[in-house]
Design a protein around this nucleic acid. Structure first.
Lengths: 274, 274
DNA sequence: ATAAATTTGGACTATATATTCCATTTTTGG
DNA sequence: CCAAAAATGGAATATATAGTCCAAATTTAT
């Protein structure tokens, strides 16, 4: 058989499908039509399901895959599973490879981290809950004082927020934990606390957020996964899932969210006052 | 076992995950964290892949599925496959849409800042001087102690560097200026100073860098324009031009550069020692 | 410090699913 | 209308993957 090479991108796949579909016998044509109309199901279905959907026997569907240039259904499915957009590249293993293979020149590393940052930014935009963001901005705009807490890897974001609020003339206080002073008594009614914490959630941050919640202070939480302990307080949740490499994460998305908060809140306050 | 009913919606799944995750032993907790951060992967992965991602044995992952209330991985996967609607979200159109609609809303601002971050990252990759970067990494890898200084808007980057060096077991000291202590005497021969400063260059940073230079301590400067005073000391210059909005800048590029330095230096030290 | 209980890793088994093969049916061309 | 070629359906087989079980390691309680 003069079997052709298998398509390696969805685009190539679509072209091949179009190209082939005009000269297909009945059953195979059904396959083509069904696939064209249900591309998204390929990644999560079995041959049997696809065949049933198309109204043909599984073996017919197999032949269809082969005509398209794949060795079988599995190979075709692989294409769709890999290019399934939700699938982030697995950075930690990629990084290990880079380092192990000695090709880990600083420049190569930089390229990886830049790429991770880009991915995080895109994902931030796709997943941010606009209503939650509006609500958080509104709450912060009305606050007497904005408290900010975030330790360890969240500390850079916390300190940036403090800087940005200061620039926007928003009264803000960074709880840095210096001197182990217990700062929870600074939380007064009418204040708002921004708590930033990512897995593994540092105990101090969670405690302060809990204290705030107990004292009736509104909490805005910048956090990641659904298992975050910050979700248990009924806080305004701003979800940020940053691509990470073991202990590191680029923070690009978190920082962008931070500036947004500061500018939006600052602007709203100025408009309200003047 | 008093096995509970399996979650039938993603929402219920997330709740169960949150509910259960606090009382989980090490390996199972890894599963929970990985799943929380990679929900979208479940539909298109095998147990083996998921287990590898979470860093556990497949059998551990199976147990995890069962604890969540499913009979096994297949049942859990079924939930995600069924509620998988396809729909690859299109980032660029979404961005345009966000910007067009209601300019000035927090979401529109976010879109702007995300875009700025992306631009900065791209430009970082294009303009980074690979040789300079190599030289900086080499110098830092040989240092007895790495000193880090950066105030005001550079402080988040400085604190992130301190965090990342700590994680990589590189002895590092963050000069934070707390209590106005004069820390310049901590600079010893054989040390290296990373000075981070962007226009307008804060006097304290420049002074410390000058003191270091005078004391024969190598200076690595992360800075922007060609008029930066840090360029006068013959330092190793890492140029970062971050897109900015008046007083703000996203810091995405600076932070990516920071992780790169930490990982590259940490790796080089570990390889050299062992 | 010791015993009990829990957790873990990995070998083993069961099962679901893909893939092939071939007898039967349908289409095509003379 | 017949023979040859192509297409089809379904049974048989191979393979990948899920799921189980238990001995070893770890943690916890006494």
């Amino acid at each position: 058989m003069p079997e052709l090479d298998a398509p390696t991108t969805i685009k190539a796949f679509e072209e091949r499908l179009l190209e082939v579909s005009s000269s297909l016998p009945k059953r195979l044509r059904q396959c083509a039509d069904y696939v064209a109309a249900n591309q998204d199901r390929i990644a999560v279905s079995t041959v049997a399901t696809m065949a049933e959907g198309a109204g043909v026997q599984p073996s017919a569907f197999m032949r269809f895959c082969q005509i398209l240039g794949f060795t079988g259904f599995s190979e075709m499915q692989k294409l769709f599973r890999e290019s399934y957009s939700g699938g982030w590249p697995d950075y930690s293993t990629r990084l290990e490879h880079l380092r192990d293979s000695g090709s880990g020149s600083p420049s190569a590393l930089l390229a990886e981290f830049v790429d991770a940052g880009r991915t995080s930014l895109e994902s931030l935009l796709k997943t941010m809950d606009a209503e939650m963001l509006d609500a958080a901005v509104a709450a912060l705009a009305k606050a007497n004082m904005v408290h900010i807490v975030g330790y360890r890897r969240s500390f850079p974001a916390a300190s940036y927020l403090a800087y940005a609020f200061e620039k926007m003339d928003v009264p803000a206080m960074l709880h840095s934990g210096i001197g182990r002073l217990d700062s929870r008594h600074a939380l007064r009614p009418g204040d708002v606390l921004i708590a930033i914490s990512f897995a593994p959630y540092s105990a101090e941050t969670v405690e302060l957020a809990e204290a705030a919640h107990a004292a009736g202070v509104t909490v805005v939480a910048i956090t990641d996964t659904v298992v975050s302990p910050l979700r248990k307080l009924d806080a305004l949740i701003l979800s940020v899932s940053e691509v990470d490499f073991g202990a590191f994460r680029s923070l690009s998305a978190t920082l962008s969210l931070a500036i947004t908060l500061a500018v939006a809140v600052g602007t709203m306050r100025q408009n309200g006052k003047i």
